[in-house]
Write a protein that binds this DNA or RNA. Structure first.
Lengths: 255, 255
DNA sequence: GTAGCCTACTGGTCAGACCAGTGGACTAGC
DNA sequence: GCTAGTCCACTGGTCTGACCAGTAGGCTAC
């Protein structure tokens, strides 16, 4: 302990203080989603700063997904409910600049998807099961009409709906958001490969069968079985796209 | 298919196009971390927009963690390496507004930590093991000098260093970042409870023993054992802070 | 009663100005 | 020759004032 510890003085910009105050109001619940902020000209009076300062603050808040502003709107900026788009954005950035490999994404997803179904086996309701069944029906429909690009997209949307229902049934919002984000990132990496796969018809059929097996396991309350099925499915889906070392690592997670 | 599909025309703001171009340059690697952007006045010429537009674009890029600008810097804004602070920020927001419970965080962390050690058992090098051992020594040191608030903080820092080394050994950057973020969020939720715990001395001692067990398992290459130890440790650490239903869900993940 | 216009707002953008801070060039002193 | 100090060109941060296009609600004329 050598005397008083000085901290570097950090110039705190005016717009940062504006951001802080509004952010605090939103996160503390003083401003709820759907409510409106005062107009920029009103805010510049309340904070006694210039309009450019207000605007920069609003830009930051918008980038964080807290508010949205529309030109011409007679009301001010709208407070938004939380949405994972910012999380998705930063995770996509992480994937791009950190060069996340497909294998790392697959590991992450395999583990979290398996956890989601394990939890869902305990907590699922009939409504959840019905939603999953409906999603599987959509997958069948997309598979029945043909196997063009639109159908592959529809199949993917139904698949997402299925996993979303599972994640909600599991009751863990963090897992729900993260698996959703990673699914989107991975879809961006392999979508064209999948759409052009010559055996995509067989793949889709096996996918439907797999999801039905999972629903059956969830209905029976057999979490470990559902988790095993999910892990195996993830492995089967991506192992073919991975180099040998990443494939081995993924296999190690199968248990 | 009913005729051409019209998309809603979205007014694309000028600053958004500026953001896009710079973002693309950064993510594609045309601009590498440490490089400098031109000054705002130079950018406003290159993009032929006003300075406020340039500034709003830079604010957005700064909020996304891509650049940083300092007043008075004769160079322009600096391109930053990826850092998980934005990810952490949005996950913290998720935790606050979505009311993520401690149980959800614990589930997430238990599963990912266990995965990290499982992978680390396969891929760990002697350097990784040495780093982990050093972190454990730091934990011992923090525990030996006393049990004040500063020592608890030091203990936590060493604990973070340990888990960071494990995650790096596992080779999955996504898991590394996510566990780090969640650890920070959870620490914010329970730190005061932990610092005031009357039995924190015993807790810290058991923590040291646990981490040494994990290192031994990793050295032996026994991933499943290391994973089991990790899960159990997470459960023991947080079960006491959870309501009954969340505790039961967490126990279900122990396997 | 309704279609259309009018108007008072909104946010988006620009131009220009000033300030405080930075860092490099330049210079005076040793 | 080298250092300490000054100076200056330039930076980002902020404010002012202005204009435009878009929106919504009220008003008017049919």
């Amino acid at each position: 302990m050598g005397g008083p510890r000085f901290e570097p003085v950090r110039a705190v910009r005016a717009y940062e203080r504006v951001v802080e105050q509004i952010e605090e109001a939103v996160e503390s619940g003083a401003l709820t989603p759907g409510e409106r902020l005062p107009s920029e000209r009103e805010l510049m009076v309340q904070f006694s700063v210039g309009r450019s300062t207000v605007r920069e603050a609003l830009r930051v808040l918008q980038a964080r997904g807290l508010v949205r502003s529309r030109p011409g709107d007679p009301n001010g900026a709208e407070v938004l409910p939380f949405s994972p788009v910012v999380l998705k954005k930063s995770m996509t950035t992480l994937a791009r600049v950190s060069e996340l490999s497909l294998g790392e994404l697959a590991q992450f997803r395999m583990v979290l998807d398996a956890t989601a179904v394990l939890l869902a086996a305990r907590l699922r309701t009939e409504e959840h099961l019905a939603e999953m069944a409906a999603a599987v029906e959509d997958m069948k429909a997309a598979g029945a009409t043909g196997f063009g690009a639109a159908d592959v997209a529809g199949f993917g949307a139904a698949d997402t709906a299925f996993h979303d229902a599972v994640a909600r049934a599991g009751g863990n919002k963090l897992i729900q958001v993260c698996t959703d984000v990673v699914r989107a990132v991975m879809a961006g990496l392999v979508e064209d490969r999948l759409a052009r796969a010559p055996d995509r018809e067989a793949l889709m059929r096996r996918g439907v069968a797999h999801h039905e097996d999972v629903i059956a396991a969830l209905r029976a309350g057999d979490g470990p079985l559902a988790a095993r099925l999910t892990r195996q499915w993830t492995y089967d889906s991506y192992a073919g796209h991975l180099p040998a070392d990443e494939r081995a690592a993924l296999r190690a997670l199968l248990e």
